[in-house]
């Protein structure tokens, strides 16, 4: 997993010269945000701990909270 994280970090770093050259604050913000989110999931996976997933929360909330699921009908 360390190799996976290092691999993606290297690939992301590959984009760095272009990012620095363009000096586009919005682009840097977007890349930082996505990279941080990706690292969060990779680190959680490497440490074998649960991570927060919006999709998982949404389906559970729809199912148990709103009852919006076909599983209710058997």
């Amino acid at each position: 997993m360390i190799f996976v994280i290092a691999g993606f970090a290297a690939l992301t770093a590959y984009e760095l010269p272009g990012l620095i050259k363009r000096r586009d604050a919005k682009e840097i913000a977007a890349v930082t945000l996505i990279t941080a989110a990706a690292l969060y999931y990779f680190v959680c996976y490497a440490l074998s701990v649960n991570a927060w997933s919006p999709m998982d929360r949404l389906v559970h909330w729809l199912e148990s909270g709103l009852g919006l699921s076909y599983s209710r009908f058997g």
């Binding site: 993606f8 690939l11 992301t12 590959y14 984009e15 272009g18 990012l19 363009r22 586009d24 919005k26 682009e27 913000a29 977007a30 890349v31 996505i34 990279t35 989110a37 990706a38 690292l39 969060y40 999931y41 990779f42 959680c44 996976y45 649960n50 991570a51 927060w52 997933s53 999709m55 998982d56 389906v59």
Partner: peptide, 29 residues
């Protein structure tokens, strides 16, 4: 994402987004 951030190109986002999808898919469900 490019539209939301008003970026000229999406090229810089490709690798981070791919890393995100690979990582998020481990926890999406």
């Amino acid at each position: 994402l490019r539209k939301v951030f008003r970026l000229k190109t999406y090229q810089a986002l490709v690798v981070p987004m791919a890393a995100f999808i690979a990582a998020y898919s481990l926890y999406a469900l």
